[in-house]
């Protein structure tokens, strides 16, 4: 489903150029949740950005369901992200003046889905994630754990084939973090999706089927 082959990423120019990701190859199958762990600055987020079509590798390829991302232009990558991928970000990036429900529906509207369908699906997801009482609230009224659950609902709205999560527990306490990761696992692996979880926390990574360790841009073991 997700195949990365010999990914290489150099950031910066000239004397300031740094190799952030070096010769990384990996594969994630349907129903599998993998974790990428590593210390700060090891290249986890850079790797996730390439896997999620947020940035392009300097070298190497990423294929999602057989589609080579390097064949897509900016518009194509945007469409891919909105329709086939789901993101749970460390900063949920919710729109402050929209309600929780509207923020989730927004992902459907960006993907071009009819609003009524998106609303129905949003209600289902918010209920499934225990947020039905919060759907009319604005993000400012929610706790960190709730915000991440909203982000998860938004990520799942368009039934993505892959869910990518970037440090989803970084701003949460241990209990909230465990709850969010459990929900993430349930809604990816449990529903036949592929999942990639980036974290620096080994206990969070423990929920994954496999853990890849990234050190100085290279995979240490698997």
């Amino acid at each position: 489903m997700l195949v990365a082959d010999r990914l290489h990423k150099v950031v910066g120019d000239g004397a300031l150029a740094v190799t952030a990701v070096d010769e990384v190859s990996l594969q994630v199958e349907r129903g599998e949740l993998i974790a990428i762990v590593g210390p700060s600055g090891s290249g986890k987020s850079t790797l996730l950005a390439m896997l999620g079509a947020l940035s392009t590798p300097t070298d190497g390829t990423v294929r999602i369901d057989g589609v080579d991302l390097s064949d897509l232009d900016e518009r194509g990558r945007s469409e891919l992200r909105s329709r086939r991928l789901g993101f749970v970000l460390q900063r949920p990036a919710l729109v402050p003046f929209l309600t929780v429900s509207e923020n989730v529906v927004l992902a459907g509207q960006i993907a071009g889905r009819p609003k009524s369908m998106a609303s129905e699906r949003a209600d289902q997801l918010l209920t499934a994630l225990g947020l039905e009482d919060r759907s009319g609230h604005r993000p400012a009224a929610l706790s960190g754990g709730e915000l991440q659950r909203v982000a998860l609902a938004r990520a799942l709205l368009n039934d993505p084939v892959i869910v990518l999560a970037d440090e989803p527990t970084a701003n949460l306490d241990a209990q909230q973090g465990r709850a969010v990761v459990a929900l993430l696992a349930e809604h990816t692996r449990g529903q036949g999706r592929a999942g990639v979880l980036v974290t620096h926390d080994e206990s969070v990574a423990a929920v994954a089927d496999r853990t890849l360790r990234l050190i100085d841009g290279r995979l240490a073991d698997s």
Binding site: R91, P92, L94, P139, A140, L142, G144, L147
Partner: peptide
Amino acid sequence: LDPADVLRAPA
């Protein structure tokens, strides 16, 4: 401005 805001996750 609440100093505790720094501990809160940004929305």
